[in-house]
Amino acid sequence: MLPDAIPTLTGHGVVLRPFAEADAPLVQSVADDPLIPLITTVPTTGTREDALAYIARQHDRLRTGAGYSFAIADPSTDEAFGQVGVWTSEIAQGRARTGYWIASPFRRRGFARAALASAARWALGLEEIRRAELHVEPWNEGSWRTAEACGFAREGLLRSWEQVGDERRDMLVYSRLPGE
């Protein structure tokens, strides 16, 4: 049975936990990132009110069946610096999708890898999830290297797969199965 609350996961040098009101400055800090608001529901306004609404939506994802949204935080300070999700809209087929973002000042430190490894290990340990998928734009080498480092296998290119901003974009599809 899928958990009915967002758990707190520890390991790999990060904590994955539910978003808190104290994480509003993080959300505000990525509002002007050139990519994060295009591929997520992070607001572009940068206001505290909109950041709090984003946080509320992350909590609501579980109730609506969309999945689990975790803040990625430092285990010693609890400062959040990113987000990772385990999306369960295709759970009836035994599939979950994952995705993540890291605020610019915290990139290239292994946090995305640590968060994805923890989230994938947790998700693939759930009885209902027999396959975890990840979609990455081909140009995003840092992200596809992260996926590969976490045991995700590249399966192919999905042409014109997703609307990103004003254009259709190709996506590489990766997967990982339990026990991999």
Rank of each mutant, 00 (worst) to 15 (best):
S143C: 14
A71V: 07
Q163R: 14
L2V: 06
P178I: 04
L38M: 08
L134A: 14
D166W: 01
W161V: 06
L2K: 13
A53R: 13
Q163I: 06
E127C: 08
E148P: 01
D74E: 09
Q28K: 06
S160P: 00
E180Q: 10
P178K: 01
L16E: 10
N140D: 12
S89G: 13
W101D: 03
A114P: 01
D78C: 02
V84F: 03
Y174I: 10
P7K: 09
A112F: 01
E137A: 13
V84Y: 02
V15T: 14
G82F: 00
S69M: 07
P37M: 06
G151W: 01
P25E: 11
G99W: 05
S104T: 10
E21S: 15
D170F: 01
D23W: 05
D170L: 05
E128F: 00
I102E: 05
A66M: 12
E155F: 00
F152M: 15
Q83Y: 02
T64E: 14
R109A: 15
D166G: 13
R145T: 07
V27D: 04
L172Y: 05
Y54L: 12
V30Y: 05
Y174L: 09
A120R: 06
F81S: 12
G46D: 09
V173K: 07
G67H: 11
D60P: 08
A71E: 00
N140W: 01
S118D: 11
G142L: 09
Y68Q: 11
E180T: 11
G165Y: 01
I72G: 07
R159G: 03
L9R: 09
L126K: 06
P7W: 03
E49I: 03
P138N: 03
D50I: 07
A53C: 10
T47V: 08
A73I: 10
L26Y: 00
A120S: 14
A119P: 13
T98G: 14
W122Y: 14
S175M: 02
E79V: 08
R17F: 04
P3Q: 10
I39C: 15
H135F: 10
Y54M: 11
T146F: 04
R17H: 05
G151R: 04
R107K: 10
A115W: 02
V86E: 05
T88M: 01
G165M: 01
S69E: 08
L134S: 11
S29R: 05
A51D: 08
A132F: 03
T45V: 07
L35D: 14
P138S: 11
S29P: 00
G11Q: 10
P105A: 12
E90H: 12
R121G: 15
I91R: 04
R113F: 02
A51K: 07
W161F: 09
G65L: 11
A71G: 08
I36Q: 15
R169I: 00
F111V: 07
R95Q: 14
A114H: 07
A24F: 01
E21G: 06
T41E: 15
R145M: 15
R63I: 09
A92I: 02
Q83I: 08
F152A: 13
D166P: 04
I72C: 07
R17K: 14
V15M: 04
R168E: 04
A153N: 13
F152P: 15
I129W: 02
D23E: 08
Q28W: 00
F111K: 13
L172E: 07
R131H: 07
S29T: 05
I39N: 11
T77P: 06
